[in-house]
Design a protein around this nucleic acid. Sequence first.
DNA 1: CTGAAAGCGCTTACAG
DNA 2: CTGAAAGCGCTTACAG
Lengths: 333, 333
Amino acid sequence: MKRASIKDIARIAGVSVATVSYVLNKKEGSRISEATRKKICEIAETINYTPNKIAKSLKTNRSKLLGLILADISNDFYSAIARCIEDEAMKLGYTLLIGSSDEDPEKFKKLTELFSEQQVDGMIVAPVVNSDDAINRLIKEKYPIVTIDRYLKNINIPGVMIDNTRISESVGNYLAGKNFEEAIYVGYDTQLPHLLERQEGFEKGITPEISCKKVLVGLNNIAEEVFSGLESNIDLSKKTALYFSTNKLGTAGLRYFLKSNIKVPEDVSIIAFDETEAYHLFPTEISFVQQPLTEMAKEAVRLMDSQINNYSDNGKKVVFPARLITKRSVRKK
Amino acid sequence: MKRASIKDIARIAGVSVATVSYVLNKKEGSRISEATRKKICEIAETINYTPNKIAKSLKTNRSKLLGLILADISNDFYSAIARCIEDEAMKLGYTLLIGSSDEDPEKFKKLTELFSEQQVDGMIVAPVVNSDDAINRLIKEKYPIVTIDRYLKNINIPGVMIDNTRISESVGNYLAGKNFEEAIYVGYDTQLPHLLERQEGFEKGITPEISCKKVLVGLNNIAEEVFSGLESNIDLSKKTALYFSTNKLGTAGLRYFLKSNIKVPEDVSIIAFDETEAYHLFPTEISFVQQPLTEMAKEAVRLMDSQINNYSDNGKKVVFPARLITKRSVRKK
DNA sequence: CTGAAAGCGCTTACAG
DNA sequence: CTGAAAGCGCTTACAG
C-alpha cells in the first residue's frame, strides 16, 4: 500500500536521505561518488520509486501545476486552446488543472480558490464578466496570472489576445465592397470587452449606407434565440450579410438556414468567428475569422513561465493578428 | 509574498495551531469554545487565509486530485466526456488534471507517471494500445483506476463503457431491412478492443446477402485516407450504406460526400458514431449512435470515489446502453 | 476545551 | 564526498 519513499532508498543503500535526494535531483554542485550514485539509481529503479512531488512542492514552494480556467471545455474553441496549452505546458514540465466557468463569476471564483488551494504555480484564465474581485484577490496574493482570449478592462495583467476590433473592422470592410443593403451582427448580449469590440469593429467597418442590425442573445438558449432573432430580422428581399461573432452562434445560425432552406450565399452571405469542423460540413463552406491558437497558447505559457520564475506586474499584453479566411459563403458583388 | 498559514492565525489568535486546525476543519469530535472558534474564523477571513492543500495532502495522503487521460481533449467526443467528468468530480470535491495521450503508449505512460508523482487520488483513463504495462504498474502500486470509453482485454479493472458489439449489431440490423447491396465499415486500423467490437458487431448485424467492405485508416491523415478509401470503394451503381465508427471518421466522410457531390441518402446511406455539432450542419441530418455521456461520467467518478475510499479490485465494469438516433441519412427501403 | 509533539516526504544550507 | 538537522504547512492521537 505504502509507496516507496526516499527514506526507503536511503535505508536499503545504507546512506542518508540527503544523499539520495542529491542523486535523484542530479545536482551538479555537490558531487556524489559514482559508486553510490549508481547504487541509489538502481535501488530506485527496482523498488519502483516515484518521487512525491507534493512533498517536494511543500519544501520548494513550486508545484509545477498550472490552472486553466476557460468558459467551457466542451466548446470546440476552448478545447482547441486547452489542447495547445496542454502541449506547451507539458514541454515546460507543468501539469494542467482544468476548470470551466460557464461565464459564471461564482464558478470562476470557486475555481480560482480551488486552484490556489492546490498551490498551482499560476493560472491561465479567460475571465468572465464580474470576475474582477476574484482576479484582484489573486493579484494581491501575487499569483501569476495570464489572461487568454479575453482581457479585463480595469486590471492590467499579462495576457494574449487578438485585435478583435481590427479584424472585425476588416470583416466589415470586406463586406462593404459588395453592395449589401443590410448587415446583421449576431452576438451575445454581454459586457465582455472582446465581444463588444467585435461588434463595434464590425459596425465601423461596414459603410454607413448599409443598415446594420443586431441580434443579441443570452447564454441559455442560444439556438432558440438565434433562430427567432434571425427569423424576425432577416429580410430576404434585401441583400443581407451576417457576421456571427462566435463559433456557437455561427453553428446555430447555419442550422437555422438549413432548417429554413435559406441558401448561402444566394439568399444571405455569412462570415463567422473561429474555426470549427462544423463549418466544413455546411453545403457552402463558410468564411471565418481564424485565430492563431497555437502561437497564442505558446505565448500564454511562456508569459506564465516567465512570471513564475521572475514575478513582474508589468501587465504585458501580446496581441496576435487574426485572419479572415474567405470561402464561398459571401456573394461576389 | 508569503501566503498566510495556520501558524499566522494561531499567533494572532493566541492559540495553538492544533486549535486552528480543528476549527478550520469543522471537526465535531472535539469541541472548541464558540468564542475562540469565532475569533479564529474572523482572523482567517481578514488575513485572506487559503488552506494549503498540498501540506494537508502530505499528511492525510489524500490530494483530492483526479487524473484524466483521454486520447485528445480537442476532440469533440473527449471534450464532452471531460466536461461531464469535471462536473461530477467537482461535486465530490475533486479537481481534475487532464492529459491527452494521442493514442501513444509512451505519452500515456508519461502521463500516468506525472499524475502519480502529483499524487492524484486516482485516474480515469481511456487506455491506448500497448498501455498494459503502464496500467499494471499503477495497479501494482494500488492506484485506483477507472477506464472510460475503452477497456483492456487482459486486465480486469473497474470501468464504464457501452456495449459496442450490440449497438453495432443493431445498426447492422437496421440497415439489413432496407435492401442494401453493399455495406462499408469505416474504421481505424487498430487493435483497440472497443473499435474491433464495432466492426464485428456491424458485420454480424447486416445480413449475409449484403457484401461488406472495410475502409480502415491510420491516425495521421484521417481525412485523406478516408477520402481515398471511399473513392476507391464506393460504387454508386449499388445501393450502399456506410457505418462510420467514430465522429472524426464521420465528419471526414461527410466532407468527402460534400466535395464529391454525393447525395445523402439518395446516393449513399449513412450512420455515424457519436454525436457532434457538425452532423447537424450537413444538408441531411445524420443518423448516429448516441452514448449516454453524462451517466457514464457520473458512474466513472462514482466508481473512482468508491475505490478511493475503500479500495477493491473487483474489476467491476458498468455497461451502458447506446442508442441509435435515426435521422434522414438512411434511405427508406 | 486546548496544546505539545510527532510526522507526512521531501530539500538544502551547513559542517565535516 | 556524505550526513545531521531544520523546516515546508498541515493533521491527529494523546494528555491534561
